[in-house]
Simulated scan of single mutants.
Amino acid sequence: MKRTSAIAAVTAAALALSLAACGSADSAAASSAPAEGTAASTEAAPAGDFDADQDITVISREDGSGTRGAFIELTGVEEKNADGKKVDNTTEAAAIQSSTNGVMTAVANDETAIGYISLGSLSNDVKAVTVGGVEASAETVKDGSYVLSRPFNIVTNGDATDPVAVDFIAYVLSKDGQAIATDNGYIGEDGADFTSAQPEGKIVVGGSSSVSPLMEKLIEAYKTVNPNAELELQTTDSTTGVSGALEGTYTIGMASRELKDSEVEGGAKATVLALDGIAVVVNPGNTTDDLTVDQIKGIYTGELTTWADVQ
């Protein structure tokens, strides 16, 4: 009997403690619950509350991209090895996107991401950081103070001979064509007046996805001054733009970088359409506003891995 009584007493005590604990938890929950009409405790963090200890998500372009080629050269991510061969040291952890829009979407959807795009394609979906304290703009590219800039080239196999190609190239380099480049955020020259010779025929223009948005506008404008011509635009990449011009797949190629020595030796001729800056972009929620060229290089080679490393 004594043993039975003892067990009953212990059980009763445990039950009392359990009920007390539940009561306390319910009271605490009730006191901490938000009043009707107020935000719940799971509400998103306020804007600007960025955790710099997060790992950096590196977004890069694909091999063959002129934007990638210019970017790795200008930032020093590409270096010569002991044999004098140029090596792209972009970290293997980089997520690859095959277009400017792909980079912007990836960065816009990930607060830890960083990417690079054509200045003329910059939108409010992403934030361009200053580089060494200099803003990426048409003015800073033109005066040389923004160091990440490159040419937009149109490429032909030697001198253009197709009448439509000759007329179209004259148009894009004219005052009207260069004004279109400037109006769209690129850096054009003054150019001369243009009168079309009204040639008939079809040409194919293809290559760099960075040059393509500007080229599309130039083609549309040219068709209004010469409705006799048909121009087809194909968007690929800079390397394909050059090889296509040399092989005859494209009448005119597009490249968002300087031509390689091997391409020039193969007969490729580049004509500068306009200058463009390469904007380094982060998510709008990222509090990072400025990076040096060395920091950008460190991020893209994998030496700097968290946002705290650059703040």
Rank of each mutant, 00 (worst) to 15 (best):
R68D: 02
L173W: 03
Y171H: 00
A95W: 00
L214M: 14
P34K: 07
V10C: 10
F50P: 05
T57V: 15
F50S: 04
I72C: 07
A270E: 01
V272D: 10
G158C: 13
A52S: 08
T57D: 04
T90R: 07
T4D: 12
T140M: 05
Y186K: 08
A44V: 12
A197F: 06
I59F: 06
R68L: 15
G76S: 11
I72Y: 03
I296F: 08
V77E: 03
A270F: 02
D143V: 14
N153Y: 01
P163D: 05
G188H: 07
G248P: 07
K80G: 09
F50N: 03
L231N: 00
V280S: 03
S212L: 06
S209M: 01
G64V: 05
G64H: 04
I59P: 01
V205G: 03
E92P: 03
D83G: 13
I7K: 06
M104L: 12
N184S: 14
G84P: 09
G206Q: 00
V147M: 12
I252S: 01
M104W: 00
K86G: 12
A108C: 12
D167K: 10
Q311L: 10
I278S: 01
A14Q: 06
T38I: 02
I180Q: 04
G248F: 04
L148T: 05
A221Y: 06
K142D: 14
G69N: 07
Y116M: 08
D83M: 15
D49K: 10
T240Q: 03
A14T: 08
G185H: 05
S262F: 09
S121W: 01
M254K: 03
A94Q: 05
A47P: 12
Q311V: 13
V310Y: 02
S209L: 02
I187R: 00
L122R: 07
D55Y: 08
E220H: 10
L15K: 08
C22G: 14
D125P: 05
E79C: 09
G115S: 11
T112D: 14
D176W: 04
T100Q: 01
K2M: 13
S121M: 12
A28S: 13
A270S: 14
S118Q: 06
Q178W: 12
M215C: 10
A268G: 08
K269P: 04
L119I: 07
V141F: 04
L148H: 02
S137R: 02
A39V: 13
T140P: 01
N226G: 05
D167Q: 11
A44F: 07
N153L: 06
T301V: 14
K175N: 15
M1R: 11
S118H: 04
W307V: 06
A44G: 10
D53I: 11
G69F: 02
P227G: 14
